[in-house]
């Protein structure tokens, strides 16, 4: 039953991921991306991360995707017509590069395995808000404070980049 549920969510995730890349209409791409992020949130829940599942839905599928919707509506994007034109180097190199990438991925999926130690059973508070918050404010405090700095810099940069010139 649980395996069937996981398979269904995986199917939704892969199908919506394909729609993000393959469909021509930017709005359909965006809605597929939101579905994909929501199915990833379900995976986070199944893996025991309650807090990251919550912020995946609130921050990622909520706030960032609203930003994308806003930009698509603002720019009034057309459907794109033809695939990109490659340069000369791309025309020579695309087949070896694609084959090398495919070989690496197949080797990673089917190659030798690393035996991970059998984990102890998880505590009842694994992935809870309390544990994540405790770690964020003790072990990772420096990185946590720097994330706030990064967000401020990104916000100021976005305002400066996107504002109208006032000549």
């Amino acid at each position: 039953m649980e395996n069937l549920f996981g398979l269904a969510i995986a199917f939704v995730a892969i199908f919506s991921g394909l729609m993000v890349v393959l469909h021509r209409n930017p709005m359909v791409n965006l809605v597929s991306l939101i579905i994909n992020l929501a199915s990833a949130a379900i995976f986070f829940l199944l893996l025991g991360g309650q807090f990251i599942a919550a912020i995946q839905v609130i921050v990622y599928a909520g706030a960032i995707m609203v930003l994308f919707v806003f930009v698509i509506m603002l720019l009034n994007l057309r459907r794109e017509l033809d695939p990109p034109k490659g340069g000369r180097i791309q025309k020579i190199l695309y087949l070896p590069a694609a084959l090398a990438l495919a070989a690496g991925l197949v080797y990673a999926a089917l190659g030798p395995r690393i035996a991970l130690p059998a984990p102890p059973p998880p505590g009842p508070d694994f992935g809870s808000v309390e544990r994540v918050g405790e770690l964020l404010f003790t072990d990772h405090l420096f990185a946590f404070e720097f994330v706030s700095l990064l967000l401020v810099v990104a916000m100021v940069g976005a305002v400066v980049l996107a504002k109208r010139r006032l000549d």
């Binding site: 893996l47 960032i64 992935g127 994540v132 964020l136 990064l150 980049l161 996107a162």
Partner: peptide
Amino acid sequence: SAQLRSMDGQIFVFFVMAVAAAEAVVGLAI
């Protein structure tokens, strides 16, 4: 994180989300 029963992976997810938010904002502004 689920396999190793270590919370550090989930902390990393948090930071990656923050960086992704910053990246999306600057990218859309550009």
